[in-house]
């Protein structure tokens, strides 16, 4: 059971980590309904306004519980890249990692079996910070990187 308390042992705690979890992306069909559910039933707080990302054709809001953040993602129409995912049930969509140098992190991950499918671009939900999306060939899952500028 002691091993569940990972904070003391992680590279993050020792200042060696190059990637730390920023948030979990979660696809929903109604951001208002899901925001209500996560706040009223699960105790999340609302960290941001609901914003529209024209590049991804999604509405987004960031929620928080303790140190954990969850991004609710609502595709606005069938042209959104996450619309197919919603049609298949939605839910957990990606893990976003915070990195100091997004270009260096992309290069490293591409050499480790990841496919870059959205190049770094400014994200409205993150105040213009750069984000990129990659696909893990091994896990068949999406990860997002956000450059923290540190």
């Amino acid at each position: 059971m002691e091993k569940l308390h990972c904070v003391q042992e992680t590279d993050y705690a020792k200042g060696r980590a190059t990637m730390t979890v920023d948030h979990i992306g979660y696809v929903v069909d109604s951001i208002e309904k899901s925001k209500d559910k996560f706040t009223k039933q699960y105790g999340f707080s609302v960290l941001s306004d609901i914003v529209y990302d024209p590049l991804q054709r999604v509405r987004l809001v960031m929620l928080c519980s303790s140190q954990h953040r969850i991004e609710l993602i609502e595709p606005v129409d069938e042209h959104s890249p996450s619309y197919d995912f919603l049609k298949k049930g939605g839910g957990f969509h990606h893990i976003c990692f915070s990195v100091a140098d997004i270009d260096a992190s992309i290069k490293k991950l591409q050499g480790e079996g990841h496919l870059l499918f959205v190049k770094p671009k400014e994200a409205i939900l993150f105040g213009g910070k750069k984000v990129a999306f990659l696909y893990s060939k091994e896990d068949k899952k999406i990860i997002e990187l956000v450059e923290n500028g540190e």
């Binding site: 890249p81 996450s82 619309y83 197919d84 995912f85 049609k87 298949k88 496919l115 499918f117 696909y135 060939k137 068949k140 999406i142």
Partner: peptide
């Protein structure tokens, strides 16, 4: 052939 499986194809 949806957006997720498109990534699987490309990979």
């Amino acid at each position: 052939w949806d957006s997720m499986n498109h990534l699987l194809l490309v990979a």
